[in-house]
Design a protein around this nucleic acid. Structure first.
Lengths: 223, 223
DNA sequence: ACCAATTATGACCATTTTGTCATAATTTGG
DNA sequence: CCAAATTATGACAAAATGGTCATAATTGGT
């Protein structure tokens, strides 16, 4: 896990970093609020550990700024202020957890891992987008430029396969395997026929075609 | 937000429910672990508040069971045990936050809202489970006791509707609307026929039936 | 236990979806 | 520019899916 620790107290910061690294994480340090915010914005962390009191820029400030940007990186707030109301304040500002000093390192680790774990690596993709073309895997709908397009099951699978590989060439063999579960060449032009039908639905009525033929290789979906 | 509170102490449970409801949430209560697990599995909550010590089934037990099922509903664990190690244990078991008794209600509210907020409102459910029956909405697959079951599109939609309402009776009118998009009575027995076909696939070969007829009302899917 | 109402199911048919084929159009190398 | 190879598409046929109906089975009340 990539973790950013924003903490001005060098001793504390080092202690935390060392511990997190031993637990197998990649840790960056920021010593003040400005730097912390900048780093948080530029890189892509799995979790942030934010000291509440910081030089230049307050921890809650950073948090708010991130949340306003739509950044959802989970944040653990550290603070010497153990009061219930402070915890509440921190959580309301968009924090995911709050830990009062003094804390045990074991607890800090558990909490960071808990909030980081949630930003699930298994969070499945439920929508695919290529240019103006969108597919909702759950609703099983497809729209281009906002207007709904009705696809038959096989056409849907075909387009899904192409969209998952957008920008790359998808070979006929690949399509036979992924869309038809054929592991041999059926010696017919099923693919051609379905590509043609798909084109009629997703490209025909529109300005620029998305589905391109790559002669001798296969097909590619691209803006 | 829909919140399930699993708590055996009636006074505490009512206090929490009242407060959460005043904050504009929909709250269900479960008085013991078994009921709690069942409710958590069948309905779709935005957050769970789990007491650590429960009759019949321990709070951590419920949590583990849910996580094993792939359920990612955020969970706040409540406990009289304030020890750091217990917190760690709870968080490691897949809890998202941990609150030691006695707690202020304000803090509980803030924390529940914090963990609920994070569970991305767009994070769609992609799997449904009722007992040994599992449905993967993305892969469009259904299995019971691990073995794959092939459903036709309409059968799939029918089962999906029943699973989303597991434990509750689903009326014929509801099915016509959700599965057939009919907003009138077709005056035929389409539903009966499809229920029969569905039974043939998900119940016939198995020990206990999941799809129950509720005479005069509709159907209910339940263990 | 019997009757009326409700639900279950097998058989059949209409429609939709998918695949095949023949033929047309397009591309590429010479 | 031509010929061979490749790809595109319209028409048709096969297969799958979904719905209707007739009849059987079940349930609940009397």
């Amino acid at each position: 896990m990539r973790i950013l620790v924003v903490e001005d107290d060098v001793v504390a910061a080092d202690y935390v970093r060392k511990g997190l690294m031993e637990a197998g994480h990649v840790v960056d340090l920021a010593a003040d609020g400005d730097l912390g915010l900048e780093m948080a914005k530029s890189a892509d962390y799995d979790a942030l550990v934010l000291d509440r009191m910081l030089p230049k820029r307050d921890g809650l400030d950073i948090l708010k700024s991130l949340r306003d940007d739509g950044d959802k990186t989970p944040v653990l707030i550290l603070s010497a202020l153990g009061e219930v109301d402070h915890k509440v304040e921190g959580l309301r500002a968009g924090g995911d957890d709050y830990l009062a000093k003094p804390y045990s390192f074991t607890e800090l680790l558990a909490r960071v891992e808990a909030i980081g774990r949630r930003s699930d690596p298994h969070a499945a993709v439920t929508k695919l987008t290529v240019g103006e073309l969108e597919m909702d895997l759950l609703a099983r709908t497809v729209r281009r430029e906002g207007q709904k397009i009705l696809l038959q099951p096989r056409e849907f699978r075909l387009l899904e396969c192409l969209m998952r590989n957008a920008g790359r060439v998808v070979t006929r063999t690949m399509l036979l395997e992924k869309v038809w579960d054929y592991h041999f060449d059926p010696q017919t032009n099923v693919i051609d026929v379905h590509i043609s039908r798909l084109r009629g639905k997703i490209d025909k009525e529109f300005e620029t075609p998305l589905l391109h033929t790559v002669r001798g290789a296969g097909y590619r979906l691209q803006v």
